[in-house]
Computed example of a mutant assay.
Amino acid sequence: MYCNRSTRESTPCSSIKDFNVISTPSNSITRSIPLAREIEDFFAVHEQEHLRRFADKYNFDFVDEKPLEGCYEWVKVEF
């Protein structure tokens, strides 16, 4: 394919609104970055669910480090 380099594509001056501002076409996809608080809330919910499942499975409260009623018998070990 032959390419004529003697001409180039350009934007007509009438299409340029402000010569001092260079802009790019707006992106139709908007990225929504969550706030730190939203991230913390998201993981807090999942952490609570995770702790509840472990407490139910092992009859032990890992937050307060206390045994709960259930099928396992917990004995405190001193190091």
Rank of each mutant, 00 (worst) to 15 (best):
V75S: 05
P34W: 02
P67A: 12
F54V: 06
F60D: 03
A55F: 03
K17H: 02
E49A: 14
P34I: 03
I39K: 08
T24L: 11
S6C: 09
V77I: 12
L51H: 13
S6P: 01
H46Y: 14
K17R: 09
E9K: 03
D61I: 04
R52H: 12
E69H: 07
L68W: 11
S15R: 04
R52E: 15
E73C: 07
E78R: 12
S28G: 08
E47Q: 13
R5N: 10
G70V: 12
F42K: 13
G70I: 13
S28D: 13
E47C: 13
K57L: 15
E9D: 02
D64M: 15
D18V: 04
S32Q: 07
F60W: 02
I39N: 03
V63H: 05
I29P: 01
I22K: 04
L68G: 02
L35T: 12
A55I: 05
S26C: 08
K76W: 06
S10T: 03
A44Q: 15
T30M: 10
E9V: 00
S28T: 12
E38H: 00
S26F: 10
K66N: 06
S23Q: 11
A36T: 10
R37I: 11
V45H: 10
M1L: 01
T30E: 11
S10E: 05
E69Q: 11
R31F: 15
L51Y: 14
S28A: 13
E65M: 09
C71V: 10
S10R: 00
W74G: 06
P67I: 07
T24A: 07
K17E: 09
D61S: 06
E65C: 06
H46F: 14
V21C: 02
P12G: 01
N59S: 15
D18F: 08
V75E: 10
I22C: 01
C13A: 05
F79R: 14
S6H: 13
Y58F: 15
W74D: 11
I33K: 05
S14E: 06
A36G: 01
K76R: 12
R53N: 15
F62E: 07
E78H: 11
E9M: 01
E65L: 12
C3D: 00
D56N: 15
F43L: 06
F62K: 02
N20Y: 09
I33E: 10
R8F: 03
G70S: 11
D61A: 08
V21N: 03
A36E: 12
S32W: 07
Y58M: 11
Y72P: 03
L35K: 02
E69S: 10
E49Q: 14
D61H: 09
D56K: 11
K76D: 03
P25M: 07
G70Y: 08
D18K: 05
W74F: 08
I29Y: 10
V75R: 09
W74Y: 08
A55T: 10
A36D: 12
L51F: 15
A36Q: 13
H46K: 15
T11R: 01
Y58W: 14
K66F: 05
N59P: 04
R8Q: 04
F79E: 15
D61G: 05
H50M: 13
C3W: 01
C13Y: 01
E47I: 14
R37T: 09
L51D: 14
E69W: 01
A55R: 06
Q48V: 04
Y58P: 00
K76Y: 08
K17W: 02
S26W: 10
F43H: 01
Q48C: 10
Q48S: 13
F60E: 04
